[in-house]
């Protein structure tokens, strides 16, 4: 009786082990809290500093010259929409098409090479992608341009969209494909109207996440889209973007510009979080871009 009771209550050595175990597990909880502190700090500062610097002029006015107060980032907001929009127009069809190819040709060696290339591309630093766009667009065209920025961002989107498309299409039951083929529907029509149509929600999610990812990029735009203090929507001239403008203002010595940088940062983060949260909310939290 006594022995059993002491066993159930635990011997000293067990109590030490239990104590150590509880301690270690508490540390993991502490690590999680510690990790989330920067998130809340960054978001907190954005709200605090960003919103206090934000006003209507920010959305409607052009950047003010040095020394002048006020001004806004109207051209940068439009520029970001343009550069990211064109990037999506280039990158999404390539990515979706390539993803459909990968999903349809699972076994071939060529497919493995493509999949490997996409994975490697995802790991290429964005600044290197920027150099690439500089080399193939800026140099031959003889100057910085909105188009070269879009090419850089598109090159970043392609592998993301490809891999999501492939994964989403593979989730479609193969029976649907067979059912469509058995109705005498040609393969291409089956792939587009039945298989891709069924995977459309997932593919769209992946595309939105890829757009959110590249919209926050600065490095590949530094020497492609470059930045522009003036209004420009031309594809073949330098164009301002939110990220580059925030960067320029943040490292400037002028307090007024630094305030503008916070305002730009809160708008930028707002757009990107809205895209990410919106997608997650629509898909019930399951969405996750490949990395």
């Amino acid at each position: 009786m006594a022995a059993a009771a002491s066993f159930l209550r635990g011997e000293t050595s067990y109590r030490i082990r239990k104590f150590k175990s509880d301690g270690m597990m508490a540390i993991t909880v502490g690590a999680t809290i510690l990790t989330l502190i920067p998130l809340f700090l960054v978001l907190g500062y954005l709200l605090f500093k960003g919103f206090s610097s934000l006003n209507w002029a920010f959305f409607t006015h052009m950047p003010a010259p040095v020394g002048e107060k006020g001004g806004g980032m109207a051209n940068a907001i439009v520029g970001t929409l343009e550069v990211v929009g064109i990037a999506a127009l280039i990158g999404v069809p390539i990515g979706v098409g390539a993803g459909l190819y990968l999903a349809a040709n699972r076994a071939s060696q060529f497919t493995n090479w493509i999949r490997f290339s996409a994975d490697v591309l995802m790991g290429v630093p964005s600044i290197v992608i920027g150099i690439f766009a500089y080399a193939i667009v800026v140099r031959p065209f003889g100057g910085f341009s909105a188009l070269s920025g879009s090419v850089a961002l598109a090159a970043m989107m392609v592998p993301l969209v490809t891999r999501t498309t492939e994964e989403m299409v593979l989730l479609v039951p193969p029976e649907l494909r067979e059912a469509s083929l058995a109705l005498g529907v040609p393969n291409w029509r089956t792939t587009l109207s039945v298989v891709a149509r069924t995977a459309l929600a997932g593919i769209t999610t992946g595309v939105i996440l890829a757009i959110a990812r590249v919209a926050g990029e600065t490095a590949p735009l530094l020497f492609t889209a470059f930045g522009n203090r003036f209004w420009s929507t031309s594809l073949f001239h330098p164009i301002n973007t939110l990220t580059v403008q925030v960067y320029t203002y943040a490292i400037s010595p002028f307090p007024d510009w630094q305030r503008q940088a916070w305002a730009g940062a809160v708008v930028l983060t707002g757009i990107i979080l809205a895209l990410e949260l919106g997608v997650r909310w629509m898909t019930g939290g399951a969405a996750k871009a490949p990395r």
Partner: peptide, 19 residues
């Protein structure tokens, strides 16, 4: 494709198109 329009098929699992 033409053959399959003249010879239809029903599968083991019901496969209505979900969309």
């Amino acid at each position: 494709v033409q053959v399959r329009r003249r010879i239809g098929m029903v599968f083991q699992k019901p496969t209505p198109f979900p969309t």
